[in-house]
Amino acid sequence: MHSDARPPLTLTLAAIGALLFLHLPILLIFLYAFTTEERTYQFPPPGLTTEWFAVAWNRADIWPPLYLSLRVAAVSTALALILGTLCAAAMAKARFFGRDQISLLIILPIALPGIITGMSLRSAYAIMDIPFSTFTIILGHATFCIVIVFNNAVARFRRLSGSIVEASMDLGANGFQTFRHVLLPNLGSALLAGGMLAFALSFDEVIVTTFTAGQQSTLPIWMLNELVRPRQRPVTNVVAIVVFVTTFIPILLAYYLTRGGSETAGGGK
């Protein structure tokens, strides 16, 4: 729906207002990382300093959660890439009995609130006496990351001309050669985008994680604790910036990798 008519002024203002509402709050995170006031959220900051970055760097309690988050995100992303791509390959073209049920199964982990995924896993661990570990966190993260990879991959599969796979077979390539020389190069950017979104999603996830982590602390859980019981508030801001940038960059890259397609749109967390 496009027209050359000029938008009414009130609509323009409302749209810009909503856009600012979405973006301005984040900027405050950056500002408060430089404040000299460490006990309150006083605005405007009484003074500006860069010391908090050094303080955060030297805080020993930040590093283990950061490593754990990176490890969980990396493993979950790898698992989601494999499972999501397999699923997309099967679902992109074929029509079979139970297809709708499977696509429902894939989106369920993000369609239902995170607390249900979290509480379900928690119940399962309780019933089966599984102790909390990095593995229990990954189990949850990989589950809700599958749909992200799946959405990206399935959209690309559909956009690919179906006959290039046939052309490859026709020219003498077997299934594995076709995958390596034709499918993978054409799926590559979509998988990369899906992987990066999955990584961002996992790195930042807190709701499911609180149910599956036990005593372990990922970076978001560390942040949550600081939010509830603040110590050095600006340090939390520094970590927030790190989390923000670590998720923001992959998202932006994913957008550029899949431009022109519909992969990321409504990919929904």
Partner: peptide, 13 residues
Amino acid sequence: WSSYLVKVYAWKL
């Protein structure tokens, strides 16, 4: 897509 927790934190500020 950007960090949920960071967004919530921003509002605390």
